[in-house]
Simulated scan of single mutants.
Amino acid sequence: MKFLCLIISAILILSLASQLEARQRFYCLWSTKRSCSKSTPRCIRLQTGTDATAMTAIYTCKYYRSDCKYLLDMCKGETSFGQLGTTVDVQTYCINNNIPIGGTGVCT
C-alpha cells in the first residue's frame, strides 16, 4: 500500500512540475514579445570550433531579420546556443560591426 502511495505521489509531483515548466516557457515568450523590435536586424557571433592545422578559431555569424526572432530563439533555447539564425559572412556582419565573440549587435 505504501509503495502504491509512493508511485501516485511521484506521478502527481511530475505532472505539477511539467505544468510549471510550461507556464515558465509561456511567460518567457510573452515577456520577450513585449520587449522586442520587429524591424531591427540582429547578428550574433559564435565560436564554432578550432582549425587544428592552422591553430585558429572558427567563427560563425548568425543573422536574424529582426530582434524578435533572435530573442524568441534565445528564450526557447531550441539549439545548444539557442540561436537558429541564418549563417552569414563573419567579417562583413560581425567583425566589421565590432560584435565580440558571444555578443550581439545590429547588422548593417
Results as ranks from 00 to 15, higher is better:
G85F: 02
D73K: 02
Y63G: 00
L4R: 10
T48N: 11
D73N: 15
S35G: 06
D67R: 02
Y93D: 00
Y27D: 13
Y27N: 12
W30I: 00
Q19K: 14
T87P: 06
F81S: 15
I95F: 11
N97Q: 15
L46V: 10
S80R: 10
L20T: 09
T32I: 07
Q24Y: 14
F26T: 03
S37F: 05
K69E: 15
I13A: 13
Q91G: 07
C68V: 01
T86F: 05
T50P: 00
S37G: 09
S18R: 08
T48V: 15
G77V: 03
D51V: 01
M1K: 02
E21R: 14
T40E: 07
I8P: 00
N96D: 15
S18A: 11
P100I: 04
R45V: 02
C75N: 05
C36P: 03
G102P: 04
I99K: 02
Q24P: 00
S66R: 03
T40A: 11
A10C: 08
T53E: 15
T79E: 05
D51K: 06
T40D: 02
M1I: 00
G77W: 06
K38M: 10
D67S: 14
A57H: 15
M1G: 05
T60V: 12
N96V: 00
Q24S: 09
P100S: 09
K38L: 13
V106Y: 09
N96I: 01
A52T: 11
Y59N: 07
F26L: 09
G77A: 06
Q47T: 09
N96P: 00
G102K: 05
S15K: 13
P100L: 06
L72R: 13
A22M: 06
K38G: 05
R25Q: 14
C68E: 07
T48C: 13
L29H: 10
I7N: 06
G49L: 08
I101Y: 06
P41Y: 09
N96L: 10
N98Y: 11
S31R: 14
I95S: 08
C107D: 01
S80E: 12
I99V: 15
S31C: 01
T79L: 02
I11P: 00
Y63W: 12
M74K: 15
I13V: 15
S31W: 10
Q91V: 09
Y64R: 03
A22R: 05
T86Y: 08
T56A: 05
C107R: 03
F26R: 12
T79D: 05
D89E: 11
K76Y: 01
I95M: 08
K62M: 11
S39W: 11
M1D: 07
N97G: 01
I11Q: 03
T79H: 04
I8G: 02
S31M: 11
Q19R: 10
C75M: 02
C43Q: 00
T104I: 11
C43K: 00
S37M: 04
M1E: 06
G105K: 01
F3Q: 08
D73Y: 05
